[in-house]
Amino acid sequence: MDIREKTQIALALLFPAAPVTEVPVVAEGPPPPRDAGVVIQDFPRCGSHLDVLCRPDQVVAVAQIMDTEGFFLESIAGVDWLEKQQLEVLYDYNRLGGEHCRVMVRTLVPRTEPVVPTISAVFPAANWHERETFDFYGVHFQDHPNLIRILLPEDADFHPLLKDFMP
C-alpha cells in the first residue's frame, strides 16, 4: 500500500457519510459544489494527490492524522469567496523525503464569523502561518498562543486580501 492510499484510508474515517471519490471529469465550467470528504486528484494536472474538504471543527483531527502519517505542514492560505460569502482556509501538507504525497485540506467558514481552531499545538509551523492568515483575512484561530499581526504593521486596522478591501 502506498502512502496516498494509506493517508486516504486514515482520512476517510473522519467522513463516514461520504465515500472516497475520484475527481469527476467535467468538460466545461467550474466543478460543482461538493460535500465534506476526500477526493483523489490528478497529480500531474493540479499538483496535489488528495483534496480533503472538512468541517472547521475537524481541522485539528485532520492535522493529527497528517502528523501520525509523517507529513509536514507546507503552508496555510486563506481564500475569500465573496459571492458565496465564505472564507476558505487551505492547508497544504507534504512529506519530507521518502514516498511523495501532497494533500490539500480545505475548510469553509462564514465570512461574517470566520473562526477556525488552531493546529499550532500539532504543528508549530502553523503558528506563523495562522498569524499570516489572520493578518490578511481576519480569520480568528481559536486558542492560538499568540494571534497578532505578523507582516502588516501592528496598528493596521484592515485585512488587505479580502476581496472587498479598498486601499
Binding site: 467550474p30 493540479c46 499538483g47 507546507e74 481564500v79 490539500m104
Partner: peptide, 21 residues
C-alpha cells in the same frame, strides 16, 4: 480553467510553492 493548482520548485533556500486558484 477554474481550479486549484500547486507547483513547487527547489530554490537555493528550499522548497518554494505556488498555490494558484
Amino acid at each position: 480553467e477554474a481550479g486549484y493548482y500547486y507547483s513547487a520548485v527547489e530554490t537555493a533556500r528550499g522548497s518554494l510553492g505556488y498555490r494558484l486558484i
